[in-house]
Write a protein that binds this DNA or RNA. Structure first.
Length: 822
RNA sequence: GCGGGUGUGGCGGAAUUGGCAGACGCGCUAGACUUAGGAUCUAGUGCCUUCGGGCGUGGGGGUUCAAGUCCCUUCACCCGCACCA
């Protein structure tokens, strides 16, 4: 629509009020704010603080689309609202700028990812400015800036020093054809997304963060957070705490043994076989010579399956017998040891005791391979299916006759006594795979020495900068492209002369976003991550708004780092984000996702041009509740613009002077609706119910149109109420009302509760629950008087004539309900 | 399968503790103004109706003087997790 005949704009000039020139007005105030540094935050300890945070974006090449600003508008409204309420507001923005797309783009075009990123950031920033966001750009952070990632690296070193960062052999997606390791999302159906080459699981030495050590605290501290319950549940499920027992099984005829984890140690007498995950380290050593070939064949088959496929193809159980047996510590029976991929190496101990009578998966497997099934809990029919319900224990020796909870307790006590097991808590949460074999990320500040030791880079040498290079192609060895930059990789200890090699892995995109909310508070501090006094004043974040797609990973990782920083005394709060809000999505017309391929992406630049930034802001808030997914509607957008036109016509005459209705003292006409509006808008902004706040503002304007005049006090109050939503329009009207300078810090209007109620109220009278009449009565009427008045009413008389009155419920201020029969 | 959520006019959505369902906007209808109207202003707009009224918040049942709201049951859709021992 920006190309060609330009008819779109001609159309819109006719469609909308010509005297409300949004392009001029919006530009004028953007310039004013910039020239006067209106939104620069100066910390005033005398004021209460408010920290409104958005999830900062990845600056992609595509720029913003209309879905992006939804949450940003909401936090901006809250920020502008709080400023007027006398808060010191911290409302910053920054860039999560490391990440794969820039690296891919650089590979494709031969450009430097840093240049590409800088260009994208400039576009995002321009777009945000044009939407009138009140960010303090002096506090902008950029995760790819060495001054910023100096501290990301510093945090890594603290993790390393505390034993929370370690190296381990982890299976990764290795693509031999591309010579690189792929992220899970780059692997589709076992093939590489780029080129469709085969991908295999291959163990490599990786950095891992010990987040599991914080699992309990991450779980417990959720309780006190003001987050959506569904999101807290997602985190709880992700952490997946599970109580049970760990017990040891001896392998018959060998010195070896293996541990299993079970939540049902009480069913131990029903364990008729054991299963190891294919990757279990005992697999090789216990397999008997006769079974070697079968086991090898099975392992080959499994290796080609990705994690996803292994779970997808869940219908049929597969497995192979090792030839070895374990001994059931309770019954003394021999249990064949099998290998099957329904047991995951990454959960528990990677091995299970199978109780087919009381576990659906074990039951299926036992049926498939003809393994024995022994009932130990009565109540089901194990001929037909596994019984997982409650029941009395049978065939279980000393557990016979007990119920589930008692049996669990007693079995654990017995295991402990016999030295064969113990109580154990297991988590679904796994340690965090932290290294990436990529160029465009924070270098991990570790040096591997030729004597086999490794050390962290000295903190005084940070930041360890990412070397600029023209060649960021994969090294081909599975190492990151940094491995090719010999002058960077190779180091010599100046004191001992020992040679070493820098870690070539880089950090994942999550790293920089784990702590950015801290840096906004003290963005230019070169001596420490954050000044402790400032941290104490500004934390926790009062409101954090972002998409639900980050419900688990980002929010869990950031909480983890925050707790580590708490432990080392950097911050004084246990949690970073006290209150969190997930905004919904904006869908294209037809309720489909906006996407390039569908061609239904709406670019905010176009709307800012055609309708104005204020229209876009108010429309996105008026569409519906912030948390809901909503369909974009051009008609709805026009409606929002019409509302602004309506305001403009009320406040401004054709010749640009202050509207002729505006001015003077109140004659009482608008008192009630004005005070209601102040009350509702104030409460709604506080609770982020911006859609209903706007509807109340519309009600007020409708009433103004019906009134002869709008007193100055109400006109000014209204402009203040509008200003967080439509800041440009509000500034312009504020000026028309005769004020100089910005409206930003003008105190928020208050309401007079006495003006909210009339002297008389309308009361509905129901007969048998149906409204049959309305009464106009004094607001302070008593219950008895109300009842009398209702029964005396003509319409009511008509309805109850000849009937027996069973009961009359009269509630002053609400209604009267008369129960009559006959 | 497990966990969480949502179902209200033609459409987006409002409705404190259970107390007049449908605020506000879009759309639609009529009138006014007008050379003109996709502008503006005013009024109307849940459905049915024999004009008395009746029926209405996904369906069925219940509690209550009173249910969109509470309880039971059922259906549909959405989100997350998914062989987690």
């Amino acid at each position: 629509m920006l190309s060609g005949d330009g008819s779109f704009f001609i159309l819109n000039r006719r469609k909308f009020n010509m005297s409300y020139k949004h392009l001029q007005i919006e530009q004028k105030w953007r310039d004013y704010w910039k020239d006067n540094e209106t939104f620069k935050m100066t910390d005033d300890p005398a004021k209460p603080k408010f920290y409104a945070l958005d999830m900062f974006p990845y600056p992609s090449g595509a720029g913003l689309h209309v879905g992006h600003p939804l949450g940003y508008i909401a936090t901006d409204i809250l920020s502008q609202f709080k400023r007027k309420q006398g808060y010191n507001v911290l409302h910053p923005m920054g860039w999560d700028a490391f990440g794969l797309p820039a690296e891919q783009y650089a590979l494709d075009t031969g450009n430097d990812p840093a240049e590409f990123t800088a260009k994208n950031i400039a576009t995002f920033k321009r777009q945000m400015d044009e939407l009138g966001f009140s960010y303090d750009w002096d506090r902008e952070v950029n995760t790819t800036d060495p001054k910023y990632y100096k501290w990301t690296q510093w945090i890594f070193i603290q993790l390393y020093k505390r034993g929370l960062a370690y190296m381990d052999e982890v299976a990764v997606n290795w693509c031999p054809a591309l010579g690189t390791v792929l992220a899970n999302e780059e692997v589709i159906d076992g093939k590489s997304e780029r080129g469709g080459h085969p991908v295999e699981r291959r163990p490599m030495r990786q950095w891992v963060l010990r987040i599991t050590e914080y699992a309990d605290r991450l779980l417990e501290d959720l309780d006190d957070l003001d987050w959506p319950e569904s999101l807290k549940d997602m985190q709880r499920n992700w952490i997946g705490r599970s109580e049970g027992a760990q017990l040891t099984f001896a392998v018959e005829g060998s010195e070896q043994s293996f541990d299993v984890f079970t939540t049902r140690p009480d069913t131990i007498f029903g364990a008729t076989y054991a299963v190891l995950a294919p990757e279990h380290k005992l697999v090789d050593s216990i397999t008997t010579p006769e079974q070697k070939d079968a086991v090898a064949a099975y392992l080959d088959k499994v290796k080609l399956k990705s994690d996803l496929e292994r779970t997808d193809l869940a219908k049929e159980k597969t497995g192979v017998f090792t030839g070895a047996y374990a001994v059931n510590p309770a019954s003394g029976e021999k249990m064949p040891i099998w290998i099957a991929d329904y047991v995951l190496v990454s959960y528990g101990t990677g091995a299970i005791m199978a109780v087919p009578a009381h576990d659906e998966r074990d039951y299926e497997f036992a049926k498939e391979f003809g393994l024995p099934i022994t009932e130990v809990v009565a109540g089901g029919d194990i001929e037909r299916e596994a019984y997982t319900g409650e029941g009395t224990h049978v065939n279980s020796g000393f557990l016979d006759g007990l119920g589930k909870d008692e049996a669990i307790e007693k079995s654990i006590a017995w295991l402990v006594e016999e030295g064969k097991g113990e109580k154990k808590i297991t988590y679904r949460l796994r340690d965090w795979l932290f290294s990436r074999q990529r160029y465009w990320g924070e270098p991990i500040p570790i040096i591997h020495w030729e004597d086999g030791t490794m050390t962290a880079v000295d903190e005084s040498e940070l930041p360890l900068e990412l070397p600029v290079t023209g060649d960021i192609r994969p090294s081909g060895t599975g190492e990151s492209p940094l491995a090719n930059i010999t002058e960077w990789v190779n180091v010599v200890d100046p004191e001992t002369g020992m040679k070493g090699r820098r870690e070539t892995n880089t950090m994942p995109q999550w790293a920089g976003s784990c702590w950015y909310y801290l840096r906004y508070i003290d963005p230019k501090n070169d001596d420490m991550l954050i000044d402790p006094e400032l941290a104490e004043r500004w934390l926790p974040v009062d409101i954090y708004v972002g998409g639900a797609e980050h419900a688990v990973l980002h929010l869990l990782y950031a909480r983890f780092w925050h707790k580590v920083l708490y432990d080392i005394g950097v911050v004084k709060t246990k949690e970073p984000f006290q209150k969190l809000f997930n905004q919904g999505m904006i869908l294209g017309e037809g309720n489909v996702k906006m996407s390039k391929s569908l061609g239904n992406v709406i670019n905010p630049d176009d709307i800012v041009h055609s309708h104005g930034a204020d229209t876009l802001r108010i429309y996105e808030m008026f569409m519906g509740p912030l948390e809901a997914s909503k369909e974009w509607s051009t008609n709805g957008l026009d409606g929002s613009r019409k509302f602004l036109d309506r305001i403009w016509r009320l406040f401004v005459n054709e010749d640009g002077s202050l509207g002729s209705k505006i001015g003077g003292e109140s004659d009482g006409t608008l008192d009630k609706v004005y005070n209601q509006t102040v009350k509702k808008v104030t409460e709604d902004f506080e609770g982020m119910h911006n859609n209903t706040a706007i509807s109340q503002l519309m009600v007020f304007i409708n009433e103004c149109y019906k009134a002869d005049r709008v007193p100055t006090e109400f006109a000014e109050g209204f402009v203040l109420l509008m200003s967080p939503i439509t800041p440009h329009l509000a500034e312009e009207l504020w000026e028309k009302l005769g004020h100089e300078g910005t409206i930003t810090y003008v105190p928020w209007p208050t309401y007079d509760a006495d003006k909210l109620v009339d002297d008389t109220v309308e009361i509905a009278v129901q007969i048998n629950g149906k409204v049959r009449a309305k009464l106009e009565v004094d607001k302070d009427i008593t219950k008895e008087e109300l009842e009398k008045a209702a029964l005396a009413n003509e319409d009511v008389q008509k309805w109850i004539d000849g009937k027996e009155l069973k009961k009359v419920i009269a509630i002053p201020g609400r209604l009267v309900n008369i129960v009559a029969v006959g």
